[in-house]
Design a protein around this nucleic acid. Sequence first.
DNA 1: CACTTCTTTGTTAACGCTAACAACAGTTGA
DNA 2: TCAACTGTTGTTAGCGTTAACAAAGAAGTG
Lengths: 339, 339
Amino acid sequence: MAVGSTLGRRLPVMADVAKEAGVSHQTVSRVLNDHPNVRSETRTRVLQAIDKLGYRRNLVARALVTKHSRTLGVVSFDTTLYGPASTVYGIEQAARAAGYFVSIVSLKSIDRAGVRDALDYLADQGVDGIVVVAPQRSAACALDDLPLGVPTVAVEGGEAGGVPVVSVDQVEGGRLATEHLLSLGHETVWHVSGPSDWLEAEGRVAGWRAALEQAGREAPRPLAGDWSPRSGYEAGRSLASMRNVTAVFVANDQMALGVLRAFTEQGVRVPERVSVVGFDDIPESEFFSPPLTTIRQDFGAVGRHSIEVLVRQLEGGPQERERLVVPPVFVARASTAWA
Amino acid sequence: MAVGSTLGRRLPVMADVAKEAGVSHQTVSRVLNDHPNVRSETRTRVLQAIDKLGYRRNLVARALVTKHSRTLGVVSFDTTLYGPASTVYGIEQAARAAGYFVSIVSLKSIDRAGVRDALDYLADQGVDGIVVVAPQRSAACALDDLPLGVPTVAVEGGEAGGVPVVSVDQVEGGRLATEHLLSLGHETVWHVSGPSDWLEAEGRVAGWRAALEQAGREAPRPLAGDWSPRSGYEAGRSLASMRNVTAVFVANDQMALGVLRAFTEQGVRVPERVSVVGFDDIPESEFFSPPLTTIRQDFGAVGRHSIEVLVRQLEGGPQERERLVVPPVFVARASTAWA
DNA sequence: CACTTCTTTGTTAACGCTAACAACAGTTGA
DNA sequence: TCAACTGTTGTTAGCGTTAACAAAGAAGTG
């Protein structure tokens, strides 16, 4: 690509290419859009002109007339956390592979108004579709009043207002963790949960409860955390002081780290005296002391599926009210042992 | 905002609002853009019409004529890692506060071609400016051939081709870590470095070397990792088998976790026999066993500054060849002790 | 009172592209 | 020979907005 004749001047437009190639601008457009009826000799002449002038088509002008920007909007919450970050990454990769740009709004806090603003913001910008990573009840609610006419998919969105949802089966994950601990002979399993307004936290609690119930065990009162290692640490200190605790299912790996730390400080040995299971399988978990048994979520798959569903809608499909569930995977390591 | 008369029809445009308010479309435009010369009575009539029709302005059309999209592009590498994720988050927050959208391209691998493509991709889309998170030498090189005319800022970009750079002072960080260990009476300090093509890794090595040299100590051969806990673990196994190692500066916290794990397995006590310092201060570090002494990077500040510099350029400032450096902060915890 | 100036509004022409239709050659077929 | 078709290209008219200029009235000034 050369800069050539337009050096220092304004960027070349389609008309410049047309003149250079001795055709009409419409023929240039046809070449660019792979229309069938262009003589191959004409096509090469146009391509040469494009190359010579260093022409790049103006996608804004294109979007104005086609009404499609080939941009997807993503609304997420705190992309500093491993889960959201991985999900957004998966979404971005899948979107690009499908030929779409991604415009991201990362919310600091999620109230209904914040999500609404973000959605309006994206709709204004002319995105073709939106993925909302809505792990909280409040965010999921905001999906009830969507910008009209913009196809939307929710990730981890519960029964979000009429839009398709892609999520990891949190209930199943909670069940897997709990059943594993029960199968090791533990009388019951304690639980450090995530914040109560998070759907994921709720799902894990439900799975944990279901597994205990099925085994005919009493469910102890869960300890509530906020996903942070510190909150896990505090829960861990409480648990360490209780003699009857032998198994703990912690709702994410970061809090599990805090629990492990508290146990170490209090001289509670893992897994000899207490077994611990986490959730997420962050890259660090394998190197905790001891390496953490956990439930892996395939965030990449969630991202890919959400884009698949969205693109299917964009490209003509009907607004199906589908619900895609990605199964979690149990990962055995060294933080759990026989009672 | 009501949906009103256009229910089920096409979205209302400026002309519809104009007709509703009994003015010309240009007057509507003036109201929307806060032009001074509009009679206040006219203004309220227009605003009422906007509200009644549920009108939202078409930013694509606006961008076509103004040549500004109020969108910034961000090119980053693997936003799953804590550092890049935090930086991008900081950028996004700052950009939104400044009234800009953010379009993100997250590269899987960074070769020069990949970065180039991403830049073209964004330039095509009509972004007003670009932030490149270019922590690798290869990425930084790609800044040499930038899309013409799009203001750009590099984050962690070394001496990137003529564009402003915002970064954390990695050399100073490496120095802080090493000096701390030397001040505790350690004879010398070993180093587990990041990948050699990362500028950050290089800076930390340089700081470590400088501190040792200044103290008149021999620098041992550094062990190379790839930022992952696993590579730290492997380095840790090597170090554990060497009797003369009493202090290790690890180039990031994730690898430090791996080192700690290897030491634990081999019965090497931290900090009693070996002191360990990490880098980054990820949220987990405080809860490692033992809590990790480390160097904190203020990723949020880096993001904010990069947007500041970029916006200053966009809004008329000259393309200054500036270099903004954010100082790292030493964080003392329990993984270091007197030799 | 004529003259300039200011305020408010409207009219017209872009911005760079694609869609729709028109036009023209070169076939083909009756 | 004329009509109908086919493949290729050009012409025109938008998309929805802002910029530039024009115009009309109000207000100030000598």
